[in-house]
Design a protein around this nucleic acid. Sequence first.
DNA 1: TGGCCCTATGTAATCGATTACATGCAGCTT
DNA 2: AAGCTGCATGTAATCGATTACATAGGGCCA
Lengths: 355, 355
Amino acid sequence: MDEAGQGDMAEQEAIPVRAARIQDVAKLAEVSTATVSRALATPERVSPEARARVLEAIAKTGYVPNPAARSLRSQKTFMVLVVLPDLSNTFFSKILRGIEETLFEAGYGMIISDLDGSPEKEAHFAAFTAAGRVDGAILLNGHLFGQTREGEGQPARITIPLVALCEAIPGADIPQIEIDNRAAASRMIQHLVALGHRRIAYVSGPANNILERERFLGFKEGLEAAGLPFDPALVIPGDYTIESGVAAGQGLVARTVRPTAVFCTSDEMAIGLMRTLFSAGLRVPEDISVAGFDDIEFAAVAEPSLTTIHQPRRELGQAAATVLIDLLQGRPTLKQIRLETELVIRDSVKPPRQS
Amino acid sequence: MDEAGQGDMAEQEAIPVRAARIQDVAKLAEVSTATVSRALATPERVSPEARARVLEAIAKTGYVPNPAARSLRSQKTFMVLVVLPDLSNTFFSKILRGIEETLFEAGYGMIISDLDGSPEKEAHFAAFTAAGRVDGAILLNGHLFGQTREGEGQPARITIPLVALCEAIPGADIPQIEIDNRAAASRMIQHLVALGHRRIAYVSGPANNILERERFLGFKEGLEAAGLPFDPALVIPGDYTIESGVAAGQGLVARTVRPTAVFCTSDEMAIGLMRTLFSAGLRVPEDISVAGFDDIEFAAVAEPSLTTIHQPRRELGQAAATVLIDLLQGRPTLKQIRLETELVIRDSVKPPRQS
DNA sequence: TGGCCCTATGTAATCGATTACATGCAGCTT
DNA sequence: AAGCTGCATGTAATCGATTACATAGGGCCA
């Protein structure tokens, strides 16, 4: 190692104290390594005196078990992989926090994999997982991995417990933790309809996305329930990002006949869309109502504040982590958990001007 | 394991294929395990024929080296710990992405630790680090860990390479990657002054936070440069969150003599503050100008769009990861890297009404 | 042709824990 | 008293890679 980063350090101890091993503890406590190991893993199987001596020796040496050795032998890593499509997306951060919290309490660490739409990364993490670097994984990306190139050369079958979070994975027989996207979307449409809206536009998520499919079904269901026709011209493509919301807004502004309300399937898009409407001189909700989905932090402080569907993000993360831990520890789990969403009524939706 | 999660799986192969070991590959390729290992680690030290046979065998068996075994022997984990104070904070997510990207390319995995203000978590991760579970760490939380209880029982000294990101760590002799917070804050004040503002309020970050200290110094520096007096009454406490911005706004609304401009040291606070001003019937920037700091995604689409300081978040993450990797691989590194910020002028700041 | 060096490869020690199996001893039953 | 049970503990195999050291063989030079 070059000295560049350490040129003038002074108060550091000169002797690089080798980390204490179980051997050192055993010697100090005058027992065998087996007893030390048992004192930690199964205290009830060790006499109180021996246990006390071991604990004292551990405190004295600052012993921390070497995880590599432990996991090599026991085939457990106490690590969980969280796979998500885009780490920089606001929507995920609170979910992650819920996951991290719960994992931490159970003694598990969290490794994050941001797929970023890259198949190579996906393949890498599939191998990573297959290699036994983690005990289980939480998938937020809507599909299993390692599913791509089957052909020759066994594609490293994933055998560890998996849990799907938010985006249900169709063919997979793994626990799913999610919200009822369809019902939530339908609920929002019914709310808009109840206020008198008849021409309701829909800003979609990315094509083929399972959330998108569900929300779109909910959208149509809501229309149907209200006896309104479905008009494909009122479906505007988006991909959940702010930018796509901005773009959707531009398309809307350019129209001669506009919808009276727009249901955006993410808050980011709703906020981006409102921005564009403002720039064009349109007012929300006076000229056009805008609804979102997710209830991210900024929804409440947007101007106007955003009517949206609240997703219990932290709880979703906690639930997924809990299920995975149950799975890892051999406890029975539910195959599907659906958390409740909530329609949050704020200022971006009002009855249309002339109904 | 209970069957709850796996009741009716069908197409799964019945034989739980034990993952291939280096032995299996060696046998198939008709070489020794040493040759297999070398074919992967130092291909140039293996004959082309042997290498080809090994690679073929690897492909055929789907062999992936067992990381626990590897790291037990080589004392390397190819894992990096990222310590941050709040995972659910928007500001960090893009930084994380920059880190993850760079680590991934270099073959490192990322473990995340959300300290959440909990000393226990901090102690835990200090032990975690000391135990050799990671090769290095990136600290976003502004202080070293394991620094707490020195006393008896050696407190598991951290000896692995560390890098401080965003929040410089005063006494520590480790590389720092950051922006020039002071200069950036000063720059913003000068911009406000140049537009004619004389009464400029400052919404602070949490007390004792190093970013806060620097930005506050910059604020005062900016005032001084303009020959304006520093008025403690114009300093409003905050903690970078939306909520604290909302609270700061309430305080402001209640005043009889208001500043003509408010410099919030985070975009979140600026957005929360604008919200409160709107609710009270004040207009931004007509009645009062508002500036932020960070340039998060929502700054551009806020209403009005937010004048702020752009931080190259992704690049910050990349730079920190790059420095850490250099450190890990024994290359020389810089001790301090300061990335450029940029004043982004948008619509939330205008000259005061009567100057 | 003998000696030397270099390359390719193999053998086996090693990393640090967990844990199957063995052992010794105390207490209880018959 | 013999035999059984069960607890506390120790011994040593084991997990799967990396790598120090040993060795075989080929090429080159004198």
